[in-house]
């Protein structure tokens, strides 16, 4: 496949931003800044960035509790994201949703169900609405290997297949579901792609540590879906670098395996590729880092200054 310079640099910008954001969240959590939990997506950014690089205006997205950094890829500001993480005004829910319900309807965010996989049929419902609208927009529905064990995933895939709906199911297989390895939760090698054929759905497995591999797979499948052929499943293989949540020391697994996976760093790999092919220089990277870090810092400071929601609005938004 050939890639335009614009596409490559956009992808790099997103990958770098996502990595810096994921790293910053780890730091912030360690400082006690975050109310609630962080489920770090550090190391898994390519699964999101590579897929999202295929998006079009009007597409809809269902993210997960991990890789909160990915919201920025689709246009949410760090100000918004941090305000929502702190439960302050300036996010999307006036303090009612928090980190697991970061959203922006205008940017196509569907939202998330707190019960894993509650939002998979919901995503299918959104794809039905898109199909009724006409046009070639699709739903990007992200979830993990562990989530694939829930019944609603199977119902949703079957349903999307029989109704021929425009939805890409992206199974980000980071091989761990808290302390349960993928093989402990699923008896086949590929919990996403391996089941697709059972629903008469096409699928691809891609290397989640290589953003171009992810992009290639996503491009092929999204083109297929946009042409009206029905759903597809993309399984991205990577590894959960840290514990399930910050504070989880992951003592239940072999840390040597994790160390090996850290070497397959999607950001370093892509940086090297771009430098070798003369798309960017060290100086470019430095400048981008500084700019992103400043943007993240601005988001943090804005959220710190943002106001608390007022108690007398606690009943707001329960009903229209």
């Amino acid at each position: 496949m050939s890639y335009s310079k614009e596409l490559l640099l956009d992808m790099y910008q997103c990958l770098l931003s996502d990595r810096l954001m994921e790293e910053r969240l780890i730091e912030l959590y360690a400082q006690g800044w975050v109310p609630g939990h962080i489920h770090s997506g550090v190391g898994e950014e390519a699964s999101y960035t590579g897929v999202l690089a295929t998006r079009k205006e009007g597409d809809q997205f269902k993210f997960t509790h991990r890789n909160v950094s990915a919201y920025h890829d689709v246009g949410l500001t760090y100000r918004h994201i941090f305000c929502e993480i702190l439960g302050k005004m300036g996010g999307n829910s006036d303090g009612k949703g928090g980190i697991n319900h970061i959203a922006d309807k205008g940017k196509g965010i569907i939202g998330i169900s707190g019960a894993l996989a509650g939002d998979i049929p919901i995503s299918v419902g959104v794809s039905y609405a898109l199909k009724m609208q006409g046009g070639n927009n699709i739903v990007y529905c992200f979830f993990g290997d562990g989530t694939t064990s829930r019944g609603t995933v199977h119902e949703a895939m079957n349903w999307a297949s029989v109704w021929k709906l425009p939805i890409l199911f992206i199974v980000n297989n980071n091989q761990w579901s808290i302390s349960t390895s993928a093989s402990e939760g699923c008896s086949i090698e590929n919990p996403g792609a391996g089941r697709a054929a059972g629903y008469n759905i096409i699928s691809k497995v891609v290397d989640g540590t290589d953003v171009l591999s992810v992009y290639d797979g996503a491009k092929e499948l999204t083109d297929y879906i946009r042409a009206g052929n029905g759903p597809a499943v993309l399984e991205s293989k990577c590894y959960r670098w840290r514990g399930h949540f910050e504070g989880d020391m992951a003592r239940y697994r072999d840390s040597k395996v994790a160390e090996e996976w850290h070497k397959k760093d999607c950001l370093k790999k892509f940086e090297q590729y771009l430098k070798e092919n003369k798309y960017i220089t060290d100086a470019d990277v430095e400048k981008m880092k500084i700019d992103v870090e400043a943007e993240i810092q601005d988001g943090i400071e804005t959220s710190e200054k943002a106001s608390q929601p007022s108690l007398d609005t606690i009943y707001n938004n329960l009903y229209v």
């Binding site: 509650g118 939002d119 049929p121 299918v124 419902g125 959104v126 609405a129 349903w159």
Partner: peptide, 11 residues
């Protein structure tokens, strides 16, 4: 669930 999603999606 598909009901919820179609409603969120504008139907």
């Amino acid at each position: 669930g598909v009901g919820v999603g179609s409603a969120i999606g504008g139907l």
